[in-house]
Nucleic acid binder design. Structure first.
Length: 270
DNA sequence: AGCCAGGCTCCGT
DNA sequence: ACGGAGCATGGC
């Protein structure tokens, strides 16, 4: 069991930020999270966060996953004083983090995300894992399913995936899985590329366009210059930044600002 | 009931 | 190179 006192960290905000679709709420500020082949129970009480794992796993997996070595206070302090929109967004979602998620898992989740809503994305991801994922066990003998491998999905047809209810995205998933399993797109190489090259390589995947590629760059590869523009961000930009978002001001961490804005926009719509 | 959702591919110009 | 139709499904 690991306990840490953390600033700028709110597990509810992180779990509901639409970066990861594999947080399962199990109690007050308490979640089971499946990331790659790992399962974590995490619980927050005030600034104290409890990670149910040993120190080696914490350092190897969860510390980078939650980006705990980054000072988000510095990002927040960079927000222009007169920019009341971003000031409000930061005040609202000040506990957000940019996660370092598994690359293949993020590719699948964000292919599924297109032209879809978060509630249904979550269901599709759950279906995909429970029907095609690898069965995993942790030390406490908890059973859970990881995201299916590219090899497993490459052997599937879109009809095979029908129970997942992916709609027209099923054929994208099958095609992308074949590209990855065959090595036509080398994800291990993508991991070591800079932002521009990684984005270009991801764009070769069927079902991955600019927006999805930028989400993958931001939420898996931690290229925090990425600034995905989806329908919510588009509306926000039109309403609050008609002359364009000040990307230069936030160069090097624009993706963090994007995430504050995205989470704030979601809150304004329910 | 009808609009919309963390868009993309494909096919005309 | 660019623009628009079509796309599956279900939440609200």
């Amino acid at each position: 069991m690991i306990e840490r006192v953390l600033n700028d960290f709110d597990i509810d905000q992180i779990a509901n930020s639409g970066q990861c679709f594999r947080f399962h709420r199990v109690g007050d500020k308490s979640y089971n999270l499946i990331a790659g082949t790992h399962l974590l129970n995490i619980q927050q009480n005030g600034r104290t966060v409890r990670f149910d794992c040993d120190e080696d796993e914490f350092n190897a997996i969860w510390r980078p996953y939650f980006d705990l070595d980054t000072d988000y206070g510095r990002c927040k302090a960079a927000v222009a004083k007169r920019d009341t929109y971003l000031q409000n967004a930061v005040a609202y979602g000040g506990g957000l983090r940019i996660l370092r998620q598994d690359l293949w898992e993020t590719i699948l989740c964000f292919i599924i995300s297109q032209q879809n809503n978060i509630a249904r994305i979550t269901k599709c991801v759950e279906n995909l894992c429970s029907l095609f994922g690898e069965t995993c066990y942790n030390k406490s003998e908890q059973v859970y399913n990881s995201i299916p491998t590219a090899e497993r999905l490459a052997a599937c047809t879109p009809e095979d995936l029908a129970p997942v209810r992916l709609g027209y995205r099923a054929k994208y998933i099958c095609a992308a899985a074949r590209q990855v399993a065959s090595g036509v797109v080398d994800l291990e190489a993508v991991r070591h590329m800079d932002y521009a090259h990684a984005k270009a390589e991801l764009l070769r995947l069927t079902g991955v366009g600019i927006k999805v590629a930028e989400c993958i760059c931001l939420f898996a590869l931690h290229h925090i210059d990425a600034f995905p523009v989806d329908t919510h961000i588009r509306q926000m930009l039109d309403a609050h930044y008609p002359k364009g978002f000040p990307l230069k001001r936030y160069k090097g961490f624009a993706g963090v600002m994007q995430q504050y804005a995205f989470y704030y926009e979601l809150s304004l719509k329910d």
